[in-house]
């Protein structure tokens, strides 16, 4: 009797099971987080660009190490990247921001420019979105250095800039990273 009961119990235990499930599905896992990060910013007054003739091109520039796109995780899982720039200008001059990307051999991988118009000393907001996808994204992934060059062009009216000139040029920027993390 006991044996029978125990046997029944064991049978139930053995044949209890895990049904209608498919663990292979885990292979289909796809995560698609979107991460945003601040990038470069600056805010310069007109006086910083003092230029007594009113006819010169003033160029300033800076270099940034930017090897994050080389990271293995990003190389494998980043599917799209956008750089968004917002430049607010109240200096009565034309500007151009050049963004130049270099690989580890100091070869230019990609470059783009943002032209900024003035409206006297009124604030003019210029925005620019640069999208990196597919081939362009691959170029970004081989980037290790970013150079930012800001050029100020001569005044149409020939007015020089000095310590008392008014206006600012401001830049804010961010990167939006679109990931696709899957099993491949």
């Amino acid at each position: 009797m006991t044996k029978k009961i125990v046997c029944c119990f064991l049978l139930v235990a053995i044949f209890s099971c895990v049904k209608d499930v498919d663990f292979e599905q885990a292979e289909d896992i796809v995560l698609s987080p979107v991460v945003e990060s601040s990038l470069v910013f600056f805010d310069f007054e007109a006086s910083e660009f003092s230029e007594p003739t009113g006819t010169a091109i003033v160029t300033v520039g800076d270099d940034l190490e930017l090897d994050i796109f080389n990271d293995e995780f990003l190389r494998d899982n980043l599917t799209r990247c956008e750089f968004f720039f917002e430049i607010t200008n109240s200096i009565d001059r034309n500007f151009r921001a050049d963004i130049i990307l270099y690989d580890e051999n100091d070869q230019i991988t990609y470059a783009f420019a943002i032209n900024v118009m003035p409206d006297g000393n009124n604030e003019v907001v210029t925005t620019h979105t640069e999208v990196f996808e597919e081939a362009l994204l691959e170029q970004l992934k081989s980037t290790v250095r970013l150079e930012l060059i800001l050029s100020m062009f001569p005044s149409a009216t020939g007015i020089p800039l000095d310590e008392n000139s008014v206006g600012n040029i401001k830049m804010r920027s961010k990167a939006t990273l679109f990931f696709l993390i899957d099993n491949e």
């Binding site: 470069v40 910013f41 930012l148």
Partner: peptide, 11 residues
């Protein structure tokens, strides 16, 4: 706290 990179040009 990180708010981005502020390039140093001109000064």
């Amino acid at each position: 706290t990180f708010e981005g990179v502020n390039p140093l040009f001109p000064n």
